[in-house]
Design a protein around this nucleic acid. Sequence first.
DNA 1: GGTTACCGAGCGGAACTCGATCATGGGCGA
DNA 2: TCGCCCATGATCGAGTTCCGCTCGGTAACC
Lengths: 214, 214
Amino acid sequence: MLVTDVNEALPGGSSLLRNEPVQARSSARLTGLLDAAAGIIDEIGFERLTTAMVAERAGASIGTVYRYFPDRIAVVEALAARSIARLLERLGAAIGEADSADWHSALDLAITAQVEMYRSEPGFRAIRFSETETADRSGDADARRSLSDQLTSHLVDIFSLERTADLEFAIEVATEMSTSLVARAFLHDPQGDSRFLDESRVVVAAYLKRIPSA
Amino acid sequence: MLVTDVNEALPGGSSLLRNEPVQARSSARLTGLLDAAAGIIDEIGFERLTTAMVAERAGASIGTVYRYFPDRIAVVEALAARSIARLLERLGAAIGEADSADWHSALDLAITAQVEMYRSEPGFRAIRFSETETADRSGDADARRSLSDQLTSHLVDIFSLERTADLEFAIEVATEMSTSLVARAFLHDPQGDSRFLDESRVVVAAYLKRIPSA
DNA sequence: GGTTACCGAGCGGAACTCGATCATGGGCGA
DNA sequence: TCGCCCATGATCGAGTTCCGCTCGGTAACC
């Protein structure tokens, strides 16, 4: 498996977590709580998710939920953060394998990584809304950015060689287009409508071809 | 003003509304409640919106809120439905004026219509999340579809002459790309980042040029 | 034994109900 | 044509239920 310890993707500095797990059982708990939340969100949507449900499904008490998360919304945000971290890790591994990867084909790998996440990761769809709550509680910004936001800066970071404003913008646009088309593919079809998936690859490739610094 | 009676965009068949307004004062109430909700959402986000706030700002009692809406979430969904209805109406009017409109330029008008909505309609941003709750409670599907979904079928309807599966798909893809890029433009910049707005037009035009039946 | 983790009764506040009360307007008799 | 009547629409708000969250006490770890 690609994912080893994604709990580290939720640093204590971020206000997403109240207490950093220290003992082993604790980080198992955290994982269990997030898994429970993911399942619930898949079934009834995050708006209807209650902290009591999370506790029960994870075999914990309400108090334990609040030992880890400052409030109900933070549970969803932490789940989103974990999912995005897993996506980026997957992407990093994929780029590592394809050793001759340029930033051009990296966007294609990013699409593949997303598709895998939609198919294998419960609650991944929820990520699309994670921007929802970004609004109010500022201060720790980083862990709370949207999927396409983080994916963009990840890609930009990897290929920082010839970084120009135009290039960054192009990646931003391409990322936005691909994430939305992939999301569209999974909106109605739980397996992912292949027409949209194929088209997202075509569209991104065509778009990048028109970019000067490509 | 373009909008005459958008309450008709919330048919009683949809479970978004509990009771259809009959008397005049009633639909004024409904409008007032939705306006109140829109203002609140703009100010503090829909997660923090309480039914009591909506009631107070609209000068109504809590009971009245629940006379119209089955629950808190439905208020937001109804607002989204109204906003989408207004968008489509705006779009229809714009296409009507530009009498030689082909489906090509209609997509461009659709972008303009969206931009106007973001700029003038309180709470329009909230629409982006309205898909959130679509998930579970099925049965009345129609009024609960996402922005790009409804925009797509609206455009498809208007230009039904040469309707083919490929053409519909192309419109679907183009709509998805443009709605997401426009949303991106307004994500951080309340005035709408012009780079994204310009690029969305360019991207859509370029995409359509590659479609056979264009 | 000190720190970490867990529990769950209980509190406050927000979501939602329900029966009583007021407003409206179409019908009908004068 | 007018004006009263009352069925129905619309409003209200105290009260109930449910949910988010706290906190003091107990168990597990190292």
